[in-house]
Nucleic acid binder design. Structure first.
Length: 376
DNA sequence: TACCCGTGGCA
DNA sequence: TTGCCAAGGGT
């Protein structure tokens, strides 16, 4: 006869986590935690915001960069928003960065630089919702709050073979998670659930054979874990079209402007673009340019957003003077540090080295000044 | 409630 | 190529 495994779900999961937990830059290991090392709420919060809908692999480098540059919440609060957005560029969902900065200022001023210690109080902060408030409360402050992210939804719907489709199943999942969460080590438990979802209870081909909580799992017993979670079908994403206008100066600088502070890519930088029309015949072409110049179409880029696919014509012109619109010249040395979202970096790449107007992204050749200088 | 909001990797 | 998915939140 074999020895009995742990009697409770959380005991089985935590025993597994003690051995197989992932080592992550923002994480205190269960061993260190047991030895009395307290997580830094600032690091927990920063990592949780970055991890919203974003992969661990991508977040690591951004997290290290932010911590080096802004070691505590007051340092982050003191930074200009533009610098935070520039550091965030490429991570996506830029409202997160604006809310991150707003939250840092709130904590720094209203809370004297210390984060609230309950899920309820944390949830009042900008950018901190149901998931993040529970995660911070559990990990940083040992509150047994139910932490439900996409991993937990998958694990729990499989455990219980929940047939209700998401998002309607959320209340049931949350209730079951609350029931499973132990009064001791709630932070390790939450992180263990997420590690389990990320490494064992994966969306496809889950590794049930080595799962530490298989004895508790209904879906594994029925041999159909991949059916869960059941989700509503998503609508097809529409296409939009527009044009971007890259003005270049003799020294290679490009002309940028700042987008409106809210909405799509809010507060981020861009070369001037038209509105992005849902119609294929939307205003594009040189006539749609923000100011007259010898515009030449040098390419097109495509970019997938969450709710539409964008095709952007790329128009290029060389300018002698300053354009009659608000913005600034960004030299080749400065472009890397601009708050340019990925879609706009694609535009600049498509415009670079386009003096011969084929539109094919090719490396710079240094002969990009053959268009007549024009206008001002 | 349903929709808005980025990006990159992978089957 | 297309769709799905990743430690969701705001409105």
């Amino acid at each position: 006869m074999q020895t009995d495994g742990p009697k409770t779900f959380s005991a089985a999961l935590l025993a597994w986590y003690d051995v197989h937990h992932r080592a992550l830059p923002w994480r205190v290991s269960p061993q260190d935690r047991a030895a009395g090392v307290a997580p830094d709420p600032y690091r927990v919060w920063l990592s949780e915001i970055m991890l919203q809908q974003t992969t661990v692999a991508v977040v690591k480098a951004y997290f290290e960069k932010f911590i080096r540059r802004w070691p505590d919440v007051s340092a982050l609060a003191a930074a200009p928003e533009g610098e935070v957005l520039a550091a965030w560029a490429g991570l996506g969902y830029y409202a997160r960065a604006r809310n991150l900065h707003a939250c840092a200022k709130t904590v720094s001023r209203l809370h004297d630089g210390r984060f609230p210690e309950t899920a309820a109080a944390l949830k009042a902060l900008p950018g901190v919702g149901d998931y993040t408030s529970a995660a911070i409360a559990a990990i940083a402050f040992d509150e047994p709050a139910p932490v439900v992210d996409g991993n937990v939804e998958r694990v729990v719907t499989r455990l219980e073979a929940i047939e209700t489709a998401l998002p309607r199943a959320k209340p049931q999942i949350r209730a079951k998670t609350a029931e499973l969460t132990p009064p001791k080590r709630p932070g390790d438990f939450a992180q263990a659930m997420m590690d389990l979802g990320a490494t064992i209870c994966t969306p496809t081909r889950p590794a049930c054979a080595i799962c530490p909580v298989r004895p508790f799992c209904t879906a594994a017993r029925r041999a159909d874990p991949e059916r869960f979670p059941v989700k509503e079908k998503k609508k097809a994403v529409p296409a939009r079209r527009g044009a971007a206008f890259v003005a270049r100066r003799g020294d290679g600088a490009v002309f940028l402007r700042r987008r409106p502070g809210t909405g799509m890519l809010g507060g981020m930088s861009e070369p001037p673009t038209t509105a992005w029309s849902a119609h294929a015949d939307g205003a594009t072409g040189a006539a749609a340019a923000p100011f007259p110049a010898a515009w030449a179409k040098t390419g097109e880029i495509e970019h997938g957003f969450t709710h539409f696919r964008l095709t952007l014509e790329v128009w290029t012109a060389d300018l002698a003077g300053d354009p009659p619109v608000e913005g600034w010249w960004s030299t080749p040395a400065d472009v890397a540090g601009e708050a340019l979202p990925t879609v706009m970096r694609k535009v600049l790449k498509a415009a670079a080295g386009s003096g011969s107007s084929t539109g094919h992204p090719s490396h710079k050749t240094g002969n990009s000044e053959q268009e007549p200088f024009h206008d001002s």
